[in-house]
Design a protein around this nucleic acid. Structure first.
Length: 259
DNA sequence: ATGGTGGGCAACCCA
């Protein structure tokens, strides 16, 4: 089976891209971020016609996440348990796979603007809450994937300019420690299970010809719990839709799982 | 060069 994550930067603006991408890449599960729409605007029927059951957790203008699945979504949960959050950033569900149930946690992590800002402080609190909640989630669901737009470069090699951008947003020691804390829960970065091209990124700024110059960051990730590691067959970034007209600034990350 | 582009929607917004 295949799973994927994609920050679409408005599902209203990108619905046709999503439908076109799914036709070319009929993944079993697609996790979306930055819907920028309320749930009453979510295109449930259009996705159903494309063969996908879906669950959304949106809000007006900002944030918003959704799960699109060929097979039924069970035990759908919204946001981080026990954490009061005005933003719609996490949606989780269980899907059945040939090798057992898979718990999926889809997150649009806080951007954080700049170190020292209120938004950065919120990012740190949010990451604290996510880690504490995930510890229990992983105990309850040993086969778990955490995927989405993390807004963190795990290492220097995940940035086009780690020297010039040292300790700026997406690159700070604090953010990277939070990423490591997720790994310490028993999660593994699926992308790094495989040899990958140098300068592999999942996001490129719209400005200054960012994509054309490959000035990007790898901030979209698929982390798998240890019991799933032997099942991971591949993990790749699909740059194709980033070349389409009016693209999202993010590219999808795709993982193939096999029994 | 402290810029620039894009989405949503009228916010000195948010990425």
């Amino acid at each position: 089976m295949k799973i994927a994550t994609w920050n679409v930067n408005s599902l209203t603006a990108r619905l046709q891209h999503v439908l076109d991408w799914l036709i070319a890449n009929p993944v079993d599960l697609l996790c979306l971020q930055e819907l920028k729409m309320t749930d009453d605007k979510f295109p449930l029927e259009v996705l159903k016609s494309a063969g996908y059951e879906a669950a959304s957790f949106g809000q007006k203008t900002y944030n918003g996440v959704a799960l699109l699945s060929l097979s039924p979504l069970r035990e759908i949960q919204r946001n981080i348990g026990g954490f009061e959050d005005e933003h719609s950033r996490v949606i989780s569900a269980t899907v059945d796979t040939p090798t057992g149930p898979l718990r999926v946690v889809n997150g649009y992590f806080v951007n954080g603007q700049a170190p020292g800002s209120d938004k950065f402080a919120y990012k740190m609190r949010w990451l604290d809450a996510l880690r504490d909640w995930l510890r229990a989630e992983m105990a309850a669901h040993p086969r778990l994937v955490l995927l989405g737009d993390f807004n963190i470069t795990p290492e220097d090699r995940d940035s086009y300019d780690p020297v010039g951008l040292k300790e700026t947003i997406h690159h700070t020691t604090e953010e990277r420690q939070h990423f490591q804390a997720l790994l310490q829960l028993g999660l593994v970065d699926g992308f790094r299970l495989f040899e990958q091209p140098e300068k592999s990124f999942s996001w490129w700024d719209y400005r200054m010809l960012g994509y054309q110059k490959n000035r990007g960051l790898r901030i979209d990730h698929i982390l798998v719990s240890e019991p799933l590691v032997p099942e991971v067959r591949s993990c790749t970034i699909d740059r194709v839709p980033r070349k389409w007209e009016k693209p999202s600034d993010h590219a999808p990350v795709v993982m193939e799982l096999g029994g």
